[in-house]
Design a binder for these strands. Structure first.
Lengths: 145, 145
DNA sequence: GTCGTATTTGCAAGCTACTTGCAAGACACA
DNA sequence: TGTGTCTTGCAAGTAGCTTGCAAATACGAC
């Protein structure tokens, strides 16, 4: 967990995208910016605690932030969307993720996992642009089992 | 959509696994055996129509069949489990699947998509055993868009 | 065939993730 | 500061899935 972005910087980011600066947006962005892994809606609400906004508002805020490209959905496993803060293009997590069936964590794979499909194949275009996700047991869980 | 397995063959498969032969199990297995793609619970209920069993029974039946290795979950995208009939080991779909964001279909990738991870990496074991899933826009949807 | 018991089923209720409608409140621009 | 538009909170609703429990069913023993 790194440190949260300063409120002023977050406000600037929102304004740059033509979005209104609201309590909910600032709070969500700051929590996302401080997290070192993909955060689910539930987690976000927990992290915000008492001062958090309504759950439906948080859902709408996340949607808005994704549309504005300030956040991205990097995982949609088991019906739970997980979000990351995307200040820069590199933050958009366009690499493979690993979902652990044991600890439920969504982890970034340490190196690019490139599906081996022939470029002539009609699938080539689809696969190239696809979000790659693997699920199984992560190294930590294998070790402790 | 291929043809359903004969009722007697399905009954035999159930008995081989020490499972009781029930209307629900026979019906679900026959529908799965006739489908050329991964079927969700909702789809199964629709395919069975009027004579289908209760939704909760169908859920329990699917779970039982997976435990008995007569079916397998090949996709868990968006919180929707999708099942295939696994008469033989090859049917277990231990290859990559592609989930189309446009048509929602879960498709088998035509050739093995092998993630490129060094065998020395601590991730090697996890990745080797993992279920690989890609999501994006399938070739058909790209063509028609 | 029929009996008894363990397994299954159907129904109802509940859970989580997420969506929607609407009135009230907050933001931003003049 | 006022005004119009956007956002929020609340409540209700949806989909996928689970659970508890009483009634129904499968199947081996007789």
């Amino acid at each position: 967990m790194s440190t949260k972005l300063p409120t002023d910087e977050v406000k600037g980011l929102l304004r740059d995208r033509g979005l209104r600066v609201t309590q909910s947006r600032v709070a969500v962005l700051r929590v996302l910016s401080a997290s070192d892994h993909a955060v689910s809606h539930t987690e976000l609400v927990e992290l915000q605690g008492e001062d958090g906004c309504d759950a439906s508002t948080t859902f709408r805020t996340l949607k808005t932030l994704v549309e504005a490209k300030l956040a991205a959905v990097v995982s949609k496993v088991d019906g739970i969307d997980r979000y990351v803060f995307t200040k820069t293009v590199e933050d958009r997590h366009e690499h493979a993720h690993f979902v652990c069936d044991t600890c439920d964590e969504v982890l970034c794979l340490p190196e690019s996992v490139v599906p081996a499909v022939q470029p002539t194949d009609r699938w080539a275009q689809s696969v190239k642009a696809a979000q790659v996700q693997l699920r199984g047991e992560c190294p930590d869980c294998i070790e402790t089992s």
